[in-house]
Design a binder for these strands. Structure first.
Lengths: 228, 228
DNA sequence: TTTATATTGTGAGAAACCTCACACTGAAAA
DNA sequence: TTTTCAGTGTGAGGTTTCTCACAATATAAA
């Protein structure tokens, strides 16, 4: 009945009482997105913040010469472009968001969310928490990429993806993402050839296998040993 | 007269009216720190947030095998351990903070600042902004380290240090930090030998020189070209 | 099915970076 | 001053990773 159903599926909003959810639903706008669609480009004016309702969005930064690094992949219930919130007017998005699996996203304009948050300290705190968790992840990734070799960075990436997208069964943890070797390499700056070779190393050690196009992790502990 | 004078020197608190500063001064505690002192270790229980009053603090993460990456160097007026705020109880600091230049730091316990912030949305927003700026920087650094080589990462580091610690005069921008080649390398994961060789490359191109122990940047534009 | 296209696999050589060893320099301590 | 020591410079050789080229497989389209 209420049009707040999709808001209920976004964990960060669970701190809100339903009256506030109703209010929120008036400033949040859902729209369809299709695979390949660019939701925003790095350096576009930062207009607002997004939430994934369904589908997946890849957040990435690139260099002028065309190389690209994937920062994260956002799925249902997750927020992105959070850096835009409360930013100075005239700021730009620090990364590009591309839909990699069709679905729906919700969007709230910066100024409207800011006004709303002013009276919802609970929600503001939740968002603060989310932001600080992301800073923590980013700094950890930086450490991994700078200090371990590519094998370590790959291991760290697989561990992180397993935590976020892993489905566990008796065989191990399947990473439910269609990722090419090039996609994987873009998380830590390696070429597809290197990723092929590194993955084969891990396959030889029976740490991972490939099943129906998905990576299957047999031994998460061993994988973690590459990072510590 | 008032004991809020050191609070006045922390920019993020400038949004507070003086009555609130007075209130803040009751929960914030200043203490001396001396060079080499560890303010907290990575994985210590996250008890609170810090502000530098005087001196400098180096924030770093390390690996079990002793390698280390510098995340930032905080100086007077700046906040650190911001990730601790609003974190789940039982959380730990994600990095280590070591004093590299004696001075004073102020400390606020998490729960006390949280209670205070609840009634100070203005300040909460300022802190949110600071956090998101740091996420932006961390993600940019990640891109630099992953996609450019060590020379690019060095250039990016110098540009960032010049912006934060640079003093400009007719000769160029002096980075007012005592940094060994090893310190510099720790920002992006290079050995001291590599840093020596890379710096000499930049010196040959007249982009930088060394003056009285400090790095002097003659051509910031050329340096930036290594990153884009 | 056949065909087209995207993805993966693999070798060989180049480039970047690290490691180790040792010499040099400059600033602080004796 | 001399001594000491942290920091810097540099060569040689090894390792990692990239690049380029091309072959082998999947996967999707016809």
């Amino acid at each position: 009945m209420s049009n707040t159903s999709f808001i209920d599926n976004i964990p960060i909003f669970s701190v809100l009482p339903s009256s506030q959810k109703q209010q929120l639903s008036e400033i949040i706008k859902m729209k369809k997105m299709t695979k390949g669609e660019v939701l925003f480009h790095e350096f576009d004016a930062a207009e607002g913040i997004f939430f994934v309702n369904e589908g997946k969005v890849r957040i990435s930064k690139s260099t002028p010469d065309g190389k690209e690094i994937a920062l994260s992949i956002r799925q249902a219930g997750e927020m992105f472009a959070e850096v835009a919130l409360f930013c100075k007017s005239g700021s730009t998005y620090p990364a590009t968001a591309i839909c990699i699996e069709s679905g729906y996203v919700s969007h709230i304009k910066n100024d409207e969310l800011q006004a709303f948050l002013y009276h919802q300290p609970q929600l503001a705190i939740s968002m603060f928490r989310c932001l600080s968790e992301r800073l923590r992840i980013s700094q950890t990734t930086l450490r991994d990429v700078a200090l371990y070799g590519k094998l370590g960075a790959l291991a760290a990436t697989l561990v992180r993806l397993a935590e976020e997208y892993g489905i566990e069964d008796q065989n191990g943890i399947t990473i439910k993402l269609k990722l090419t070797h090039e996609d994987l390499g873009s998380f830590f700056g390696a070429t597809r050839e290197s990723v092929t070779r590194l993955l084969n190393q891990l396959k030889q050690q029976k740490i991972i296998t490939k099943k129906q196009g998905y990576l299957l992790i047999h031994n998460l502990e061993l994988l973690k040993e590459y990072i510590n």
